[in-house]
């Protein structure tokens, strides 16, 4: 017993230096704000412009027209039931008085996920084509997905101040991994004899990618797109904490005031939006694989 205590004390006395990892990260962010802040100002302005512009379009048009457009799209892609349900759902949001918030949220989700896809799909293709790239990208994706979502908010505020751009950036980072992973997976799943056949016929690398690999991987890629949009939608609620607005702000306000009825209504509106977007993008995936 005594011996053990002595040994443990000795081990405890071995100095393990405390690593100021957080301080280092903070330093990096500060450095970026001080020296390349203009880049972030530019990004901030364009994100603001895109989200506000889209929101303005949504708010300019009468609500019923937007409902009809969505219902028609849902009908075309997912069938009659989906079309009708979408219309009823949107009508419900409107009658709850949450229409402006819902449109703000929709604008933010669409812009953020669009950017996430534009960046994510090429990265997924790169990861599928090059094993080294895959090995480097994989841990970054793990990091992006498992880091608690709130943590993204802090550097986002530092770099972009409170508001829509900070929320959009946090959403983009948080929602990008699924589409990268699924694009990578989809391309890697294309059978090797199909690829060999395309090569044996004299395809260039680009022809192989665009005429064979991507079309065959499309269904899997659409599953990734669907997941990315869903994650974006779940993130915008959190992003409202840094002033991104929309339905998230309604939820947050209800939470602060312990207001059950408003909280339920705002939450329900998020669920309705999520279901409509989910079914439409899933339907797109099914349609694409039939072409």
């Amino acid at each position: 017993m005594k011996v053990m205590n002595v040994v443990f004390d000795a081990i405890d006395n071995i100095p393990i230096p405390s690593l100021p990892l957080g301080d280092i990260f903070e330093g990096i962010i500060d450095f970026m704000v001080d020296y390349i802040g203009f880049i972030f100002d530019g990004i901030s302005a364009s994100l603001n412009g895109m989200v506000n512009g889209l929101e303005a379009v949504f708010m300019f048009l009468p609500g019923l027209i937007i409902m009809f457009v969505f219902a028609a799209l849902a009908w075309y892609i997912g069938g009659r039931v989906l079309g009708i349900m979408s219309f009823v759902g949107l009508l419900l949001i409107y009658s709850l008085g949450l229409w402006p918030s819902a449109m703000a949220t929709l604008a933010l989700v669409l812009v953020a996920s669009f950017i996430a896809l534009v960046i994510g799909i090429p990265i997924g293709i790169l990861a599928a084509k090059r094993d080294t790239a895959d090995r480097m990208i994989r841990p970054v994706l793990d990091f992006m997905q498992t880091m608690p979502a709130f943590v993204y908010l802090i550097p986002a505020i530092t770099l972009f101040q409170r508001g829509i751009p900070a929320g959009a950036i946090a959403t983009i980072i948080f929602s990008m991994p699924p589409v990268v992973r699924m694009t990578n997976l989809g391309i890697r799943q294309v059978p090797s004899d199909v690829i060999e056949a395309a090569q044996s016929l004299g395809s260039t690398g680009q022809q192989l990618l665009f005429k064979v690999q991507l079309p065959i991987a499309l269904k899997t890629i659409f599953a990734g797109i669907n997941q990315t949009i869903m994650l974006a939608l779940s993130m915008v609620v959190i992003a409202s904490m840094i002033g991104a607005g929309g339905l998230g702000s309604d939820v947050r306000r209800a939470l602060a005031q312990v207001d059950i009825s408003n909280g339920f209504e705002a939450g329900l509106a998020v669920v309705i939006l999520a279901m409509i977007i989910d079914r439409i993008t899933q339907g797109l995936g099914d349609k694409s694989s039939q072409v």
Binding site: D193, V194, P215
Partner: peptide, 12 residues
């Protein structure tokens, strides 16, 4: 030209 054991057709 080449012909493959599992055909290697383009399913899409």
């Amino acid at each position: 030209g080449m012909v493959f054991q599992n055909f290697g057709l383009f399913p899409h």
